[in-house]
Amino acid sequence: MENLDALNKSVDELDLEIGRALSFDEFGSSEASDIELIERARRWFEINLDKLHGAVCESEAIREHFSGIEAQKRNELLAAIIDALLKFGGFGTVPIASLAARVIHYGVERLCPNFQK
């Protein structure tokens, strides 16, 4: 259920969580502002699009769910993306549920144009 909460968060809220996780292993001269953390998460997301594509777009489970727009389907899609991201690995301290919700906000269709073929 905790994972499903991520679906109710805005893009800014998700980016803030991701930005905080990205700052986990670095030092700064003062606390980074929310806007800086959000910007950092957006840049990270852009940098990692290829990796996310690799994790999400090869998954048959996600392909089955991606077109669903009803609440139940969105929950199933979130679970499938979390599963795919965990299997793919390599996202470090970034919270996977937030990242999966962020992928849904970004658009699975947009990330995986191959699903439309």
Partner: peptide, 11 residues
């Protein structure tokens, strides 16, 4: 290229 007022160190 950032308007932030916080420097950072990364390994």
């Amino acid at each position: 290229n950032s308007p932030s007022f916080s420097c950072s160190a990364k390994v």
